[in-house]
Design a protein around this nucleic acid. Structure first.
Length: 417
RNA sequence: GUGAGUGUAGCUCAAUCGGUAGAGCACUGGACUGUGGAUCCGGGGGUUGAGGGUUCGAGCCCCUUCACUCACCCCA
């Protein structure tokens, strides 16, 4: 009986894993340059953390979370996103006493949705959270950092920014919008009528053609922001302009989770099919308090690694691959023992090398050397072992040159920095 | 949860009207007894996703089921 992997949960095989390693490596470099430090939190958290933090009524909590009882003791959930767990850890360890904290995380998230392009049940996110900074400069820094990260990877998703208001101005706007939508329920699609009650902001980006002209006239939150939100948003825009970050103000940009206030931003690409967002973030000034901590402003983003990988693929960026510098080819048993010794010697010196432990015909070993991408082959048989002189073959040019076995380490040892 | 599409070798796909399942790539061996990318020749590999039905006969038609893909909802 063959057992297959779980639906929507993918294997990342060696031939593809270089893509993930590259993404994560570049992210770590960029984060380090901006003062973000890594945090690792569990993949499992109390169900209540997400019910309270992400929002009791959100799709994520009501229908997408993997929830289970831990031997009847506690209701647990596989994390559907990274912010709630990071905030829990921030509060639990009293991190606020040491001033603003800039953290990042990398790891799998789980949502039980129907899989499609760019959406999987286990997916991988790279995210950052900045705690304790209410000022708009951190919003600017985060957006610019993300743009820099993408630039280093050779892609340039479109940056959308918006303000979703806060407790001072959003509730009044939502009521105004809801009332306005109810008056026009007759000309809106069924989904929009449903969303009018459940999540009126979502109505604004309805894709149904007949809704578009109606919604274009809808009242706009950006024109009804309170003074604080208005000033914050203006400062974010000014800051992005100062840094030369190109962006679009998108009044329809909405964050899916309850905790977002003020700045919302998103990076999108048309290489992703209908799931166009590769990264999304925003400010969550009330979340830490909601989860039992001191009132603490926060802002962060999550980036989908699978989606970024799709973008890099579409951009034709090659998958990086680690290859051995030297591949030993042995002609006989004596040569093979010598090859094993020399390989060990090179490895201790920090030189990546390999050999075909099956031995066998030279042709097969050379084929294996080629397959693993070795730059050089060294042929060793009984003669070479006793004379100490072997042949060094450049796999690309096929040129051979004599080499002393005792000089291999000096020849290939990485030059100290 | 809803809708559509697709299931044939490890991968990409053929198979005429319903008539004994094939190719390319990949793998493996040989041509080539100490040399990998080309060429030529050989070899292994399949319950045609699964189950049932119609038929003398089903990869093909019908039913059921499962899986995958894309889209909706929503989101990274």
């Amino acid at each position: 009986m063959k057992i297959n992997g779980v639906k929507g949960m993918n294997d990342i095989l060696p031939a593809a894993v270089g893509r993930w390693q590259e993404i994560e490596q570049v992210a770590r470099e960029v984060f380090a340059l901006h003062g973000y430090r890594e945090v690792r939190t569990p993949v499992v958290e109390p169900y209540a953390l997400y019910a309270r933090g992400v929002g009791e009524a959100t799709d994520i909590v009501t229908k997408e979370m993997y929830v289970f009882e831990d031997k009847g003791e506690e209701k647990l959930a596989l994390r559907p996103e990274g912010t709630a767990g990071t905030v829990r850890a921030y509060i639990e360890h009293g991190a606020h006493v040491e001033g603003p904290q800039k953290w990042f995380y990398v790891g799998p998230m789980f949502r039980r949705e129907r899989p499609q392009k760019g959406r999987y049940r286990q997916f991988h996110q790279i995210g950052v959270e900045a705690f304790g900074i209410a000022e708009p400069d951190i919003d600017v820094e985060q957006i610019a950092m993300l743009a820099d990260l993408f630039r280093r990877l050779g892609v340039a998703p479109v940056v959308h920014v918006n303000s979703v208001g806060d407790a001072a101005c959003r509730p009044a706007y939502l009521e105004e919008l809801r009332g306005w939508l109810r008056e026009r329920a007759a000309v809106l699609c069924a989904d929009c009528r449903e969303r009018t009650e459940r999540n009126p902001l979502r109505v604004l980006d309805c894709k149904v053609p007949s809704c578009q002209p109606v919604l274009a006239e809808a009242p706009r939150l950006l024109e009804r922001l309170c003074d604080g939100c208005r000033a914050h948003f203006a400062a974010v825009r000014q800051g992005l302009d100062d840094l030369g970050v190109a962006y679009q103000v998108n009044p329809r940009l909405v964050r899916g989770l309850d905790y977002y206030v003020r700045t919302a931003y998103e990076f999108t690409s048309d290489a992703l099919g209908s799931q166009s967002a590769v990264a999304g973030g925003g400010r969550y000034d009330g979340l830490v308090e909601t989860l039992g901590g001191q009132p603490t402003p926060g802002i962060g983003f999550g980036m989908g690694e699978e989606r970024l990988a799709l973008i890099l693929e579409a951009a034709g960026r090659p998958v990086p691959r680690t290859v051995p510098e030297v591949f030993f080819v042995s002609a006989d048993d004596t040569g093979r023992r010598e090859a094993m010794r020399r390989a060990a010697e090179l490895r201790r010196a920090g030189v990546a090398c390999d050999l075909d432990a099956r031995g066998g015909k030279l042709a097969r070993q050379f084929k294996q050397a080629e397959r693993v991408g070795a730059r050089y082959a060294v042929v060793i048989g009984g003669n070479e072992a006793s004379s100490g002189q072997a042949k060094l073959k450049d796999m690309a040019t096929r040129e051979e040159a004599p080499v002393a076995l005792s000089g291999l380490v000096a020849r290939f040892r990485p030059t100290p920095a």
